[in-house]
Design a protein around this nucleic acid. Sequence first.
DNA 1: TTAAGTGCAAAAGCTTTGCGGGTAG
DNA 2: CTACCCGCAAAGCTTTTGCACTTAA
Lengths: 150, 150
Amino acid sequence: MRQSEKEQRLHAFGRVCRDRGLSFTPQRRAILGAILDLNNHPTADQVHAALARRRPRVSRATVFRTLEAFARAGIISKACHPGSAVRYDWRTETHHHMVCLRCDRVMDFADPRLDALAVPDTRTFGFVVSELRVQLRGTCRRCRQLEDRR
Amino acid sequence: MRQSEKEQRLHAFGRVCRDRGLSFTPQRRAILGAILDLNNHPTADQVHAALARRRPRVSRATVFRTLEAFARAGIISKACHPGSAVRYDWRTETHHHMVCLRCDRVMDFADPRLDALAVPDTRTFGFVVSELRVQLRGTCRRCRQLEDRR
DNA sequence: TTAAGTGCAAAAGCTTTGCGGGTAG
DNA sequence: CTACCCGCAAAGCTTTTGCACTTAA
């Protein structure tokens, strides 16, 4: 992501935070910056590691609390995956994912045809759908290469 | 699930295990029985809890090891979810999920129209798709009711 | 018979919480 | 000023691992 785009996004995040009644502290700005830089559905720990040698110092607890609070407020979202640690996604708009079933990697996949799919009726389940997303399950390049070597 | 259907499925699981070179011990039979009974994408711990007062005794470590081994062998699968503990699914064939973003509950959703969707081309990513699944993200009945009460 | 599976207990990894002190708005 | 936020450290979940013993095939 270009620096200018990043600054622009951070600025937008600040505005949304205040709209939602959350303060936009230097720590929170750093956390959002890190998730934009990583850009690949990191865990809270990966975000914390990325910030380790940077100013301002951000504690592990703050990273966990902040990411969770932002997700609850809809400022960021959570990615669905088959693994065992919450994965965060700075994108909140509908998009799609390729999910590697070997290494749990999640990659974005854009496709307007998929965006246009009609949401099926789930009323009988009492379930209200906010969005439809497609998941392409399979094997990523790296995992296939590892496999081939054997 | 009817008792007869469950027995039939357990029998089929036994056959697949042996085909894959995995032995079908009483513990493993019990674990698969529990995941069929629960029927709702349980965590390893939930499977273990369901077996707590039953024979044969199954240790927590065995539950974790077994579910992981079965998933790797394709005997069961993992559900994709936004939470922080692996969720197992005794269904391995393509199907779809409603995912509650408040409580992380995962519910099955069947729709032949969705099953028929064409898999997009992901070659440029080096990603090989094994199946396409749809995820309906939203809020389940229980969570909406809890919300309404406030 | 023996390779594979199991239980136990300890360690490692992930997440939440309570509290005293700090700061954004 | 004051409600919200932060760091720290401890506790609570989830998952893996090493090892000695057992068992399915």
